[in-house]
Amino acid sequence: MNGRAIVLTVVGFLVGVLAAGSIGVRVIREVRTTEDATSLPPENISSTTVPPSTVKSEYFVDPNELIISSTALIPLSIQASGDEVSVDYELVSLAPRHNVPVIQFLGNFNRTQTVEIDDLPHIYPRRWVLHTTDGETFEGGPANPSARIARFDVRDGLSLSEIQSIEIVEVLVPYPIDVPFTLDQQLSPRVVVVPGVEMELIHVSDQGSTTIVQVAINLEDHETADFFVAGDGPGWRSAFFEAEGRRRVNLTWVGGELPDEIPLLATGTVWKAIAGEFTVALEGIE
């Protein structure tokens, strides 16, 4: 094949590509216009020459946010290093809170400590799943409700470009619960007040005109429930946790003879699961 033959061959190839390509582009436009028209309002269907429209997407705090219950979860950054991927995020509560009093508690040495509302764990996005482009999945999540970083143990060397999506598949939200209940030394020394929370009568001792009642709070999952026990009704003085830090409460009864069925009140917070799966927006974070 001489030089002229080669030139003609190339020209012929290009002519073929251009001819078929130009027809193909028109076909593609026609096909896609037909597909788009099915999802457009009727007024937009009449013309196939309408330029691509703009879709408005609303946000409350940040375009990358996930609204989970009354909280915006905002992914801030994502990093891959060795066999770990981590996602930093921020939680912003959207709940109305004007006139909510400052929350204080007595800390060590009777010193009053203040709790900032923004520091409270509004939600606990406990379980996350990372999907790779190869179809692998890795579970991860934050270490506790106060953490703001979700970590995944992945295969060594996984790069960010291999991450297809990240979903939050279990979210817990705190709610208050008060449960009156009774404990009986003989008949019912243990009572489940809510699923996963058991109250157990440990000890009863008379001390002169008062009676000390010791109750243990047995939590199936320490991350999803916080409870305290107080006396219910008249006859009780204040109740305190044991000094050792165990989840045992000492109550003082001053109402005369202690009833067989000891009236108590479990008060606290349970973390309830919120329905739904939430996909983390990876496009806008670094």
Binding site: L8, T9, V11, G12, F13, L14, G16, V17, G21
Partner: peptide, 19 residues
């Protein structure tokens, strides 16, 4: 003589690739 046969074959191939 012009070598038209390779050119035609190339054009057909090009059209097939584009298609």
């Amino acid at each position: 003589e012009l070598p038209w046969k390779p050119a035609v074959i190339a054009a057909v191939l090009g059209a097939l690739v584009a298609s």
